[in-house]
Write a protein that binds this DNA or RNA. Structure first.
Lengths: 350, 350
DNA sequence: TTGAAAGCGCTAACAA
DNA sequence: TTGTTAGCGCTTTCAA
């Protein structure tokens, strides 16, 4: 039986399915599948042409839901971050999206807002949606991955500095990074170096605090004041005000995030003091904002794109069958002006 | 025939399906559906309890792909923005995610990077994935929505200031907003007000340029210099340098985005000039960065959350069946210090 | 109130 | 090389 509907361009009975294409091209539905997916069977060139033609004419586009149901994979990944408005996380999300797209995966974005409940709800929701994997930049020390485990969905922990038994995780050497930032301040001759530390949900001591402490100890310098506050501009601003008002004001401050440093800069400016003249500042993350603050921040840069690429590889790429592993990335001190170094370079990024 | 497998907790033959639950609870699969979806039929309390129990014990979770296939809806929306690392767009994405989640929709995030090709590819990809709708913050004047139209997927244009025939769109009154920013500068007594304008793909004149021009004309003041550059920090920096070097330096600058203003601030600082003393600055968008720049930027704030909520409502909410409509939102001038106003308020946001 | 069963669009094993 | 067909897990009509 040969095609006999070739004259009617579109039957127009709702969305075009594989069946319509098959009928139009005068072949079976299997053949359509073969040409759409490039396999698993070969198709004669002439037939292929007919099918391609039918596809074009009818405007056929495969139904991803059906495909996902059949294959058990939606070619979709989930990403849970605390807050997409935070430059560090939006950068991370962007990088993850790019890396995932490279492998044909789409990204479901969710913000947990730092809430345990929301994080759990998102994990559950993503699992129900049959994502093929999830990236989790968790606010929890021990995230609740039960739902993922049950659905057999792989997961990689992002922004995770310490090893978590049984999990793939990606992180940066916080302590080492913090050391370089503090040592740089020490090198500038500072001996009263404060710390503006972000507050984590975990009660464990943060690697950045460790690094700050170690650098000071190794240099035989007494610990400066330390203030804990949110990892935000406002948190930094408040911390800055307290640091400035304290009994013996530091001559330099290391902030655990660029956002905090930006808040600190404002507190210092408002106090009528100069950076780095009166107080030097260094920070952590290396987001774009740090390059355009005034003065530009000397900061410890996290290799976000490399981490995102590694995360995708571990989740659904080449490394997906290797045993769970904690991958630590090195940081790089990006010297600009807030530390006291002479103005060298004009801005280069966006 | 009554349940007879109640003793075996989990048969463990791959993922638990509705069938397993039915068997375990000793009911039909239809009943399981009824309790899971709370309808369309009522279920006897006792039966419901049995089913709920089975669900809990077996750890059943519905397969979203199957549901999507059956229902023709994936409860998923797509979002295409130029760049999630740009604070304005990351804020927008966050707001859209929140508003969509409210209605049970998940968000597929994609970055077009301002590339026409990528935008088209994303539209096509989202259509294939059977999303129920897409938000498009396009870089094109006339986006290529053919794929969406064919798949009968609704779309709303975000960040769209002008009416686009046949499309739902959401935007802000750029000209009016720019006017308030420029008029404020005029009010401060400036008579040489430059414009740092972003470069759009469209060749049409941007509303912000119009607003700037109108405000000047209405005040009987001559047009200041105008520089076109990217909507980025770097773009602003470069524009700032040129504006400062020009023959007759403006005493005030209006920038078409906060990012550009931040770049301009740096250019001014580097030139050893003071803001607002030597040069006043106002800008557009109202992102968090504007509050913590030095000095804090007086900026025209876009009601991002309200726009996101309206976009979701128009796409899949209450307004989804109303005829396509262009919704314009009003902006609000947020007065801070870069314009020359006395320092009033300390930072309040994050 | 419950159950049987058709079928959403697709893939791929198997048959021809 | 191509076609037939059995499901993937779910919803819902229709019958009991």
């Amino acid at each position: 039986m040969v095609s006999m509907t070739s004259t009617a361009p579109v039957a127009s009975h709702g969305p075009v399915t594989r069946k319509d294409v098959a009928r139009y091209a005068g072949v079976s539905t299997a053949v359509v599948s073969y040409v759409v997916n490039g396999g698993p069977k070969r198709v004669a060139p002439a037939t292929e042409a007919k099918v391609q033609d039918a596809i074009r004419v009818l405007g056929y586009r495969p139904n991803a839901a059906a495909r996902a149901l059949k294959l058990g994979s939606s070619e979709t990944l989930g990403l849970i971050i605390p807050d997409n408005s935070n430059p560090f996380f939006s950068l991370l999300a962007h990088a993850v999206e790019d890396a995932a797209a490279e492998l044909g995966f789409a990204l479901l974005l969710t913000n947990s807002g730092g809430s345990l409940t929301k994080e759990r709800r998102h994990i559950r929701n993503l699992a129900a949606r049959q994502v093929d994997g999830v990236f989790l930049a968790s606010v929890l020390f021990e995230p609740d991955l039960e739902d993922l485990a049950k659905a057999d969905i792989p997961c990689v922990l992002l922004n995770n500095d310490r090893e978590t038994e049984g999990f793939n995780s990606i992180g940066v050497d916080l302590a080492a990074g913090a050391r370089t930032a503090v040592e740089h301040l020490l090198w500038h001759g500072h001996t009263r170096i404060g710390l503006a530390m972000g507050t984590n949900v975990s009660n464990d001591i943060d690697g950045r605090e460790l690094g700050w402490r170690e650098a000071l100890r190794d240099a035989g310098v007494a610990e400066g004041p330390i203030i804990h506050s949110d990892f935000t501009r406002l948190g930094g601003y408040l911390a800055g005000q307290r640091l400035l008002a304290g009994p013996d004001r530091p001559t330099a401050i290391f902030a655990s995030s660029d956002m905090q440093a930006i808040g600190i800069l404002r507190a210092i400016h408002e106090a009528g003091l100069a950076v780095p003249g009166d107080i030097a500042v260094t920070s952590f993350d290396g987001v774009a904002d740090a390059e355009y603050s005034w003065p530009a921040l000397t900061t410890v840069e996290q290799p976000v794109r490399a981490m995102a690429a590694a995360a995708v590889t571990a989740l659904v790429g080449a490394a997906r069958h290797e045993p769970a592993q904690h991958r630590i990335f090195p940081t790089a001190l990006h010297v600009r002006q807030s530390c006291g170094c002479p103005d060298g370079n004009a801005p280069q990024g966006a």
